[in-house]
Amino acid sequence: MWIKIKTQDGPNLSFPVPLSLVGSKLLLGLAAKNGDPQAAEYAPYAEDIVRELREYVRRNGHFMLVDVERQNGDIVKIKV
């Protein structure tokens, strides 16, 4: 998965994030502890979601999960 962030004022970022990291227990635990209280509620489903994403990519190829462009020119894209 690639995450790309382009801003008008700040730095542009582009970095890969392995799908295995998205579903890792460590990351989910950190999100539940430090993030949104609902993160703990969705943690059990993360492995299923990652498994389904991998299967979809294997069958159909990569796809754009998030493609947002603001009026001020900031762009966020997540490609799986």
Results as ranks from 00 to 15, higher is better:
residue 28 L to P: 03
residue 61 G to N: 10
residue 46 A to K: 01
residue 53 L to T: 06
residue 76 V to S: 06
residue 60 N to E: 13
residue 75 I to T: 13
residue 64 M to F: 02
residue 13 L to M: 13
residue 52 E to P: 00
residue 19 L to W: 07
residue 62 H to G: 00
residue 15 F to G: 04
residue 14 S to A: 14
residue 79 K to E: 15
residue 12 N to M: 03
residue 68 V to I: 15
residue 10 G to C: 02
residue 9 D to C: 00
residue 26 L to A: 14
residue 76 V to I: 15
residue 31 A to Y: 10
residue 37 P to G: 01
residue 58 R to L: 08
residue 63 F to I: 04
residue 49 I to S: 04
residue 77 K to S: 11
residue 58 R to M: 03
residue 20 S to I: 07
residue 75 I to L: 12
residue 77 K to M: 09
residue 80 V to S: 09
residue 18 P to L: 00
residue 49 I to R: 02
residue 73 G to L: 05
residue 66 V to M: 14
residue 5 I to C: 10
residue 2 W to H: 13
residue 23 G to A: 11
residue 24 S to H: 01
residue 41 E to S: 00
residue 46 A to P: 07
residue 37 P to N: 07
residue 29 G to L: 04
residue 24 S to W: 03
residue 2 W to A: 06
residue 67 D to Y: 07
residue 52 E to K: 13
residue 74 D to V: 02
residue 74 D to S: 08
residue 38 Q to E: 15
residue 62 H to V: 04
residue 39 A to R: 03
residue 8 Q to A: 11
residue 12 N to H: 09
residue 27 L to C: 02
residue 67 D to I: 02
residue 75 I to R: 14
residue 22 V to F: 08
residue 27 L to P: 02
residue 15 F to S: 04
residue 25 K to V: 11
residue 66 V to P: 06
residue 36 D to R: 01
residue 62 H to Y: 01
residue 70 R to N: 14
residue 4 K to R: 14
residue 63 F to V: 08
residue 15 F to P: 08
residue 9 D to Q: 13
residue 14 S to K: 15
residue 26 L to R: 12
residue 4 K to Q: 13
residue 30 L to K: 11
residue 72 N to M: 00
residue 72 N to W: 00
residue 60 N to I: 02
residue 19 L to H: 05
residue 27 L to G: 13
residue 47 E to H: 01
residue 51 R to W: 04
residue 45 Y to P: 00
residue 56 Y to I: 07
residue 5 I to P: 01
residue 20 S to V: 10
residue 6 K to P: 00
residue 17 V to S: 07
residue 29 G to S: 14
residue 10 G to L: 03
residue 60 N to M: 07
residue 48 D to L: 00
residue 72 N to C: 06
residue 1 M to T: 14
residue 58 R to V: 03
residue 80 V to H: 01
residue 19 L to T: 05
residue 62 H to W: 00
residue 80 V to T: 11
residue 52 E to D: 13
residue 61 G to W: 06
residue 6 K to H: 05
residue 41 E to V: 07
residue 66 V to W: 08
residue 32 A to H: 08
residue 67 D to T: 03
